[in-house]
């Protein structure tokens, strides 16, 4: 018993920790060089699902729509405590905007069948749109609570939760089924479980310290592949006119790297005379 939960996760480039390696000589970011990670707030969504499962029981399915290499984020979800993981991958999905992504995810949820709760990150750090969650909720015809801060009470029928509003928070109540978008303030995601990593990687001997780290990094995880379900456009029954580039009403017209142009700056000498002139000029112009 307990709740049937679906957690939606996305693989994103790590735009928050841009190191020198990903910077080009002209001061712009080389997007191809950014490492791929699980979207940070999706880890908060997964953590919240795990806590709910610990509280009242349940089952957690993590799903992602993305290229083949996105299996990496699903492995991470297994190590952290997801029960099942599904990769939704097809070349037809390429170039999807949030609407086409939401459509595809909706068909995947329909194929999973019944659910009580869907948990998403509030927003993904590549596009910062925060749109996919509410769009999936609308497509499924269910209610949503965005920007979750805290689950106050939960049982199999209903949830009472705090969610952020611009100038504070609201305490709200809703029945299931429901979609939540989870903020980084809701919880502190746990690390991958050593026990799960060892189980999935077929490491049976006791390892500790460095050797565990090594085992984690290197051990064979081929058996994990059996744990990962993969669906494509045909298997979820989504038609190519509503997914991928074709199903995306928004197009990117232009992308400009943000480069700082040198302004016509007026250098003010840090002397008494220089600063006095500046201050008096601002006063004469009635700016201060």
């Amino acid at each position: 018993m307990g709740l049937k939960m679906i957690v939606m996760v996305k693989q994103v480039p790590d735009t928050h920790n841009i190191t020198g390696e990903a910077m080009k000589a002209d001061g712009t970011v080389n997007r191809a060089r950014l490492p791929a990670i699980i979207n940070p707030e999706d880890l908060n969504a997964l953590e919240e699902a795990i806590r709910i499962k610990e509280r009242i029981g349940g089952h957690i399915t993590a799903i992602t729509m993305g290229p083949q290499k996105a299996v990496q984020v699903l492995k991470e979800c297994l190590y952290r405590g997801a029960d099942d993981v599904i990769l939704i991958s097809d070349r037809k999905f390429a170039g999807a905007d949030t609407l086409a992504t939401a459509y595809t995810l909706k068909f995947a949820v329909d194929k999973i069948g019944s659910f009580d709760l869907i948990l998403c990150g509030r927003q993904a750090i590549d596009g910062d749109t925060a749109q996919v969650g509410p769009q999936v909720a609308e497509k499924l015809g269910i209610n949503q609570i965005t920007s979750l801060l805290e689950v106050v009470e939960i049982d199999e029928e209903e949830i009472t939760a705090k969610h952020a509003i611009t100038d504070g928070y609201e305490l709200v109540k809703s029945k299931m089924p429901l979609l939540l978008t989870v903020t980084s303030e809701a919880n502190e995601p746990r690390s991958p479980s050593a026990k799960l990593v060892m189980a999935y990687k077929n490491i049976d001997q006791e390892v500790n310290g460095d050797s565990y780290e090594e085992a984690y990094m290197q051990a064979d995880d081929s058996s994990l592949i059996d744990r990962i379900t993969e669906w494509n456009a045909d298997s979820i029954g989504v038609d190519s006119t509503i997914c991928g580039l074709q199903g995306s009403p928004t197009k990117v017209k232009k992308i400009e790297n943000v480069v700082l142009a040198v302004n016509d700056i007026q250098q003010i000498p840090a002397t008494e005379a220089g600063i006095t002139d500046l201050m008096h000029e601002l006063m004469d112009d009635h700016i201060i």
Partner: peptide, 16 residues
């Protein structure tokens, strides 16, 4: 702005 503010994107949806 997108990509943590590192790019400015211009988006259109002309047929929408």
């Amino acid at each position: 702005p997108a990509f943590g503010g590192n790019i400015m994107a211009t988006i259109v949806s002309p047929e929408s």
